[in-house]
């Protein structure tokens, strides 16, 4: 290999290696941190320590971990299921049954994707107040069930749904809702998987809206608990690391189990 090419290779691998290492380091730090005492963590100790059991025990007693985890899981799974149901039906409807009126509504719907949540949060809070839903998990789920983004995602994906499958089913005598249920959903399984991943991630990690709505400790989600643990004047970082790991594990597992759908889901929007 000639010298300039060799140097070029070294540069490329050096750069990419550094990028990869920096990207992964906080994960390693988090895992190592669960075994270290807070004192070691704030002194930058990089080796494995002996405080894992202690940290874990404290996390479970201080934060009522099982309940908190259950809260997050319940909100995310239920929220994701409802979002996929309502928004995929709508995305399918907008694509399959074209009409000028609905096309206009759809254009308006796309605009709502751009609306910052800050605009919505005060009125939403008041609406939830009137409905008596403050400090409930339903209040967290409801506003995201019809998501402009997910509808958009499904409409784009539906363009790849073979129209002849639909036509054949119509000739076969299926009602429109039966076509959706028995033909569309099974055919589009990978689209649903990808959408599941992105919506689950978003609801699992949601912070601002639960911060506003959930007020008592036994209703809180894991994200909220970690935030409040870490914002103490002297945070117990050992405990924070255990919480962080618990909060990250589900998404990490989903990521490694469904990496293809994960990436596909993220890209889905611009295809």
């Amino acid at each position: 290999m000639p010298l300039p090419r060799l140097l070029n290779r070294i540069g490329v691998y050096g750069f990419l290696g550094a990028m990869a290492l920096l990207s992964v380091f906080p994960f390693i730090w988090m895992i190592v941190g669960t075994t270290n005492s807070t004192g070691d963590i704030i002194l930058g100790h990089l080796g494995l320590g002996h405080a894992f059991l202690d940290n874990t025990q404290k996390f479970f007693t201080q934060a009522n971990a099982p309940l908190i985890f259950w809260n997050s899981a319940k909100i995310s799974l239920l929220g994701t299921a409802l979002t996929l149901a309502v928004s995929s039906v709508a995305g399918y409807g907008f694509e399959i049954f074209r009409s000028p009126g609905r096309d206009w509504l759809y254009a308006g719907l796309l605009l709502t994707i751009m609306i910052p949540f800050a605009v919505l949060m005060i009125p939403l809070f008041m609406i939830m107040g009137r409905l008596g839903l403050i400090n409930t998990h339903i209040a967290i789920i409801l506003p995201t069930v019809a998501s402009g983004f997910v509808i958009f995602y499904f409409r784009q994906a539906t363009k790849a749904f073979p129209s002849e499958l639909r036509d054949a089913a119509r000739v076969d005598g299926l009602k429109e809702w039966q076509i959706f249920l028995y033909i569309y959903i099974p055919t589009m399984r990978s689209t649903y998987a990808a959408a599941f991943v992105i919506v689950f991630m978003a609801t699992w990690n949601n912070y601002l809206w639960p911060l506003i709505v959930l007020q008592t400790n036994e209703m809180k989600t894991i994200t909220l608990v970690i935030s409040s643990l870490a914002s103490a004047y002297y945070p117990d970082y050992g405990v924070v690391m255990v919480g962080a790991l618990v909060a990250t594990l589900p998404t990490l597992i989903v990521f490694f189990a469904m990496q293809r759908q994960f990436v596909q889901g993220m890209l889905g929007a611009i295809k």
């Binding site: 609306i115 009125p123 939403l124 609406i127 506003p143 019809a146 402009g148 429109e176």
Partner: peptide, 17 residues
């Protein structure tokens, strides 16, 4: 097909805006 989503968006999006 689209009414459930539109209804929710009207209540939790358009109305708040």
């Amino acid at each position: 097909f689209v009414v459930p989503a539109l209804g929710l968006i009207a209540v939790f999006m358009i109305y708040p805006i």
